[in-house]
Design a protein around this nucleic acid. Structure first.
Lengths: 105, 105
DNA sequence: ACATCGTATGTCAGACCTGACATATCTTCA
DNA sequence: TGAAGATATGTCAGGTCTGACATACGATGT
């Protein structure tokens, strides 16, 4: 796992030990986080393509700017349910979501 | 939407109005449920391929038989996070998950 | 009929996630 | 540089999900 991603996980609030015992995250948790990172990135991409601000997206999906920021950052406090529902609210299809998940960054 | 699926959603605890105003479920909620149904079916499929009982799966993923049953039934009380984490615990890859989501039943 | 095993359904206390808000940190542009 | 808009981070009360348990339902074999 490269340093940049590790930094990103740590900042996002996931408790990542030092390099050696990184696997205090069990592997299935790691895969779940992988998915959240991918969907968070995708959410940001879709938002930017539409030239929307986080605040505009928040209104559209009935949430708040801070939560949108957290989704994009794959913060430990956001659920997959919320991210997916948000993507669907922005017009993304299940097909797109499947593609994004199936091809981890 | 066909009758069988509707019955399934209702039994699973989703408040589905009568046929006409089915869309008291907003479309993004409907898509999310679509995803949960697909993953629930897939979980059951994987479990059966391994000839495991729900109880055995529960032990493996650190949960209970009842929750496994609810995941397979796409019960309204289960999160996507839980279903995905469970699938990963059973050895399914992100690629598989992506495929399942991308091809709604 | 009646056990036994697997699955379904209901409930609940405690854990977790949510929107909202406050506030801090970029970014951009004059 | 400074002001303004956008994004990030922290916190919290209230709502949601969780594992566990009890119990009901369904097959399958005797």
């Amino acid at each position: 796992m490269d340093a940049a991603k590790r930094r990103r996980l740590e900042t996002a609030g996931w408790r990542v030990g030092d390099t050696a015992d990184f696997l205090e995250l069990t592997s299935q948790e790691a895969e779940l986080i992988e998915v959240k990172l991918a969907l968070g990135d995708y959410l940001r991409q879709v938002r930017r393509e539409h030239r929307w601000t986080q605040t505009q997206v928040a209104e559209r999906i009935g949430s708040s700017q801070s939560r949108v920021a957290k989704m994009e950052a794959a913060d430990a406090s956001v659920s997959l349910d919320l991210v997916m529902k948000s993507l669907f609210s922005l017009g993304v299809t299940t097909r797109d979501v499947g593609r994004v998940i199936g091809r981890p960054a």
